[in-house]
């Protein structure tokens, strides 16, 4: 009750927005399960050198193509490498690619979006035209075009996948900026002569963050999937690397003989992407319940 809001839409709200957000988020059971799974996965990725039972790249020619057993939970591959260990190490690659590429995309996109929304006029239309153009393409095609220029490899995949997150975040940040530009505190800041850059950084950027965080989670899912697809078709991580998509491509020759080679990496990609998508859905619903059916 002690909050004084300047936004007419907030009249009648008695809780602080962040507390309200958490209250609603904690009711999303599916999203909480997804979050718990992702925390476990991130922990496993960080602790990979200590918890992975075997060296992910050490061959063991005495134990080639073994099915799942007590010694090798997910079996071994053509070189006798432990698939469970490779999947844990692979989590490092996929999560790094996901976080880095979406961070790059969000950084670029939010920057562009705030500038476009704040200055308006031709800057706005130029940025939005560019975003429309980028959005018209499926991400994988853009990514392949970038890889055609930079060459295959996991680092280049990060840049390639980052590019198609830019327009999503630019649109999002622009929308919020257009609203906040008219807020009383922004007017006040301008009236006392605060520089444009400071206004954008201090007064507008924080306002765009809630939406950015929701989309961040969803984009990570998409980005991990795209990166794995690129590795699967041979344009991303290269074979000795325990990247999940590359492992699938390796294992496809042994389908019917050693199914675990394609079962576990695929399951890892699916569950990770599902986790980020469910978390994103939950965050979105908690942020704005009205969007639930929209």
């Amino acid at each position: 009750m002690s909050d004084i809001s300047t936004n007419p839409g907030d009249i009648g709200k008695t809780r602080k927005p962040l507390a309200e957000f958490w209250r609603r988020f904690l009711r999303q059971k599916v999203a909480l399960v997804a979050l718990a799974f992702l925390v476990l996965l991130i922990a496993a990725a960080i602790l990979a050198p200590w918890i992975a039972p075997y060296d992910p790249s050490a061959p063991d020619y005495m134990n080639v193509l073994q099915g799942p057993s007590a010694a090798h939970w997910a079996g071994t591959d053509t070189y006798g490498r432990d698939i469970f260990s490779r999947i844990i190490w692979g989590a490092r690659i996929s999560l790094t690619v996901g976080f880095l590429s979406v961070s790059l995309g969000a950084l670029g996109g939010v920057g562009l979006g705030i500038i476009a929304g704040y200055y308006g006029r031709w800057i706005d239309s130029a940025v939005m035209r560019l975003c429309d153009l980028l959005l018209a393409f499926p991400g994988i095609l853009l990514a392949i075009a970038v890889i055609a220029i930079l060459g295959p490899g996991i680092t280049n995949v990060i840049y390639a996948v980052a590019i198609f997150s830019i327009p999503v975040f630019a649109r999002l940040a622009r929308g919020t900026t257009l609203q906040l530009k008219r807020a009383v505190y922004v007017d006040a800041a301008r009236a006392v002569g605060v520089a444009d850059g400071t206004i954008m950084l201090r007064h507008i950027l924080p306002g765009t963050l809630p939406n950015v965080i929701v989309y961040f989670s969803m984009r990570i899912g998409t980005s991990i999937l795209t990166a794995a697809a690129l590795s699967f078709i041979g344009l991303g991580a290269q074979p000795p690397s325990p990247e999940w998509g590359a492992m699938l491509a390796d294992g496809r020759t042994y389908m019917g003989v050693a199914d675990h080679l394609t079962l576990f990496p695929g399951l890892a990609i699916f569950l990770t992407v599902l986790g980020f998508n469910l978390l994103g859905d939950g965050l979105r619903d908690a942020l704005d319940p009205k969007l639930r059916n929209g």
Partner: peptide, 15 residues
């Protein structure tokens, strides 16, 4: 639906 969006299509193809 959410599983379908998250399912790696290349894995589905292999399965």
């Amino acid at each position: 639906a959410v599983s379908g969006i998250s399912f790696p299509p290349f894995w589905l193809g292999l399965l």
